[in-house]
């Protein structure tokens, strides 16, 4: 089962680059996940990005910032684990390193996970 672990930011705290200590700890965590054979891909995302919307056949592209975005995804890790609980357990470890913050864990569906199969 694949899960996408995402860290989100609501813009309430000013975005500061992570400290050296935190970066080192994150590096160690990523290495540990690789060693455990669970990490498929990981990366950080620009907080704003490009907003794109489609309505009545018309596509609108807007560069950020935009006030309506409450939670922006700022980082992700794609992991492959055997159960949902393993994903949660790994996520807990991540937050023990990072400290305060929030995120979302979502299962990534493959064709084998389609409803009705």
């Amino acid at each position: 089962m694949r899960f996408l672990m995402m860290t989100t930011e609501d813009g309430s705290t000013p975005a500061t680059p992570p400290s050296e200590r935190l970066q080192a700890e994150m590096g160690a965590f990523i290495a540990e996940m690789s060693k455990a054979g669970v990490l498929l891909a990981t990366g950080g995302l620009e907080p704003q990005g490009i907003h794109i919307a489609s309505k009545d056949g018309k596509v609108t592209v807007t560069d950020g910032p935009y006030s309506e975005a409450k939670e922006a995804v700022v980082g992700f890790a794609l992991i492959e684990v055997r159960t949902r609980e393993e994903a949660i357990e790994l996520s807990k470890r991540f937050w023990q390193i990072v400290g305060d913050g929030q995120g979302v864990i979502k299962q990534v569906f493959g064709p084998e996970d389609q409803p009705g199969q």
């Binding site: 455990a36 055997r82 159960t83 949902r84 609980e85 393993e86 949660i88 357990e89 790994l90």
Partner: peptide
């Protein structure tokens, strides 16, 4: 049960 099973497997 699920959480402990996950810890065990990891």
């Amino acid at each position: 049960h699920g959480a402990i099973a996950a810890v065990w497997r990891l």
